[in-house]
Amino acid sequence: MVYDILIVGAGPGGLTAGMYGSRAKLSTAIIEKGKAGGQAATTTEMENYPGFFRETTGPGVMGEFEAHAKQFGTVFLKGNVTEVSLEGEVKSVTTSAGETYQARAIILAPGAEPRTIGVPGEGKLRGKGVSYCATCDADFFEELDVVVIGSGDAAIEEAMYLTKFVESVTIVVIHDEGILDCNKRSAQKAFENSKFKWVWNSTVEEIQGDEMVEGVLVKNIRTGEKRVLEVNGVFVFIGAQPKTDFLKGKITLDEWGYIPTSEKMETNIAGVYAVGDARAKYLRQVVTAAADGAIAACAAEKFLEGHVEGRLTREDIENLTKGAK
């Protein structure tokens, strides 16, 4: 069959697009390789989605998003999309298992994954002390010392979660003393927590250990001084990178791999939209992903009715990529 709307990715952006599309009586399907919920489903610490603040968790809220889309009839397909054919009236996506699905409009919601630091030892010691998921791995580090790399919202909030398990959390921050990238509320909570230790003006040069993490080589970027912190775990939270490799050459991406869109979530191809963390935008949160999803589904509906062209022009893209950071 040919769906009206096919959504690639079941994070908050994709799930919201599914709910809006189905509610508009369009045949709407979401294809997802893993479990619904995206990155939000991997963190228990979530207290900034409006209306959900009493003991709510990422998986909890995402479960509600999924149920909401299902309630209006969104079809859930399982598969890892590796190929796309986006030109023309009927578009298609193909999975790694070789299954092909067709639709007249596509909403890309592939999301992002944790960015790696790219230092020696990081790849080799993943799963052996190097982690990108506090809820997955915190248990292993009970009464041990760990390092957290990064100082954004995710880094500080995940570090806070880690303090429930570990002996100490040392946060390596590139900025001057007292300066964090996270929101002020989280910063204040972190500074008041006695399990935190701080290493300022510093970057990680190497993660050391043969079979398990034994230490981290940090460098003070002001003085050039290097020293080793003896720890058993390294948690990396330095932002994300968009999962858009499968779209290279098929759609316009910016130099970082994000998908530029118009205000209506239109990409450079008619009938193809992009939402969520993989889109070039200012703020990547569950609430903004959900907003993107609602807008894309409505724009796709108008496109399917033949009212609009539904495409970002070359000029639009130039203006957008110029403005992007």
Binding site: R126, G127, G129, S131, E211
Partner: peptide, 24 residues
């Protein structure tokens, strides 16, 4: 078993670890 992060999938052959798939 040198597993400090999950999911991890490991193949053993005759009791010896022969291949490990980490989360990445």
């Amino acid at each position: 078993q040198k597993v400090m992060g999950i999911p991890t999938l490991v193949f053993y052959k005759n009791g010896e670890k022969v291949h490990t798939f980490d989360a990445g």
